[in-house]
Write a protein that binds this DNA or RNA. Structure first.
Lengths: 171, 171
DNA sequence: ATGTATGCAAAGTATTTGCAATAAC
DNA sequence: GTTATTGCAAATACTTTGCATACAT
């Protein structure tokens, strides 16, 4: 059911061009490079991962441009924030992904995607009740995965340490 | 239905003392001061707000202690992270609050609390399915409040600016 | 007595911003 | 030609940490 092929990338770029035009902004090769990379990631990502992936492919886009582009991608409906961990936000693209939420192990950081039909009905029920125009939701379940549940639990810092190791490795 | 009176504060402190003892840590006046302050806040808070509130009451607790105490309060089940905005996490205490989730206007930052019975059943359904021991969830709905929906939309930075002004005012 | 907790200041990490040069329209 | 965008480096924001002192047990 995952459609992250060239057609999804082209759809995304088309949608972004429309957004740029509507807002009176300018399109640039850097922005399209970013979109191409994001839509080739079949997973969640954070700014640092995105930056490293681009650098590994010799695509030179500065981090400042990443930080400046991400809000545009969110506003244009191409990506969304999915959860906060390791001290920063993680994102994922929207096109070609089925809608899902995240189940996260607070011990090892493992992520499982899930979907549940009841979420949509809660969203519309609450939106109507408070007269909000709801544009997005974030639903995360937190707990211990089967492996971590056996061990003690409460070793919340492992996650962050692992992340640091990963970054060092990439230098 | 809100019970943030002295008995809720005492309950919280009792629970924390039990936690401290179980973990072999030490209780300190600073930690109890922090708990008292948090349980007197009938709202969400972030580290900076907590720090300023304490300072305004001449209770001298360093920010380092706040940052070191918050994980203990989360681990002991007294508070929880509720959402990420303005570049950092916001928290709320658990005792004496009915369970609820947050509806947030991405334009003006306004927060509405809501509850929906379906959330609990999703949580247990998914926990069972993936064999996770679920300890918490975070469910946020994002959109435009009635007032902001009338104006354009997309002025995502207002929120952060307002926060900065607020801080300056408190100096 | 022992060793955890504190405050402070420094370091670390993430993100934003000023500015000159570039390039999209 | 005009002006948004870029990369860089500096600045800012948030959080963590090292260390000497204080204090809970």
């Amino acid at each position: 059911m995952i459609l992250n092929n060239n057609s999804a990338i082209m759809d995304a770029i088309q949608k972004f061009r429309g957004y740029i035009k509507k807002k009176g902004l300018r399109n640039t090769p850097e922005r399209e490079t970013i979109i191409e990379e994001i839509f080739s990631i079949h997973d969640h990502f954070d700014v640092d991962e995105l930056f490293l992936r681009l650098r590994n492919k010799k695509k030179r886009v500065s981090k400042a441009s990443l930080y400046r582009t991400i809000p545009l991608l969110i506003d244009s409906g191409l990506i969304k924030e999915v959860y906060f961990a390791d001290g920063h936000l993680h994102y994922e693209h929207i096109y070609g992904h089925n809608h899902h939420c995240h189940l996260r192990c607070t011990c090892c950081g493992r992520i499982i995607e899930f979907a549940d039909d009841a979420i949509g009905s809660i969203q519309s029920r609450i939106g109507k009740k408070y007269n909000f125009a709801i544009t997005a939701h974030r639903f995360e379940l937190l707990g211990y995965c089967p492996q971590c549940a056996q061990r003690v639990g409460g070793v919340q810092k492992e996650q962050r340490h692992r992340k640091r190791e990963r970054r060092k490795g990439a230098e």
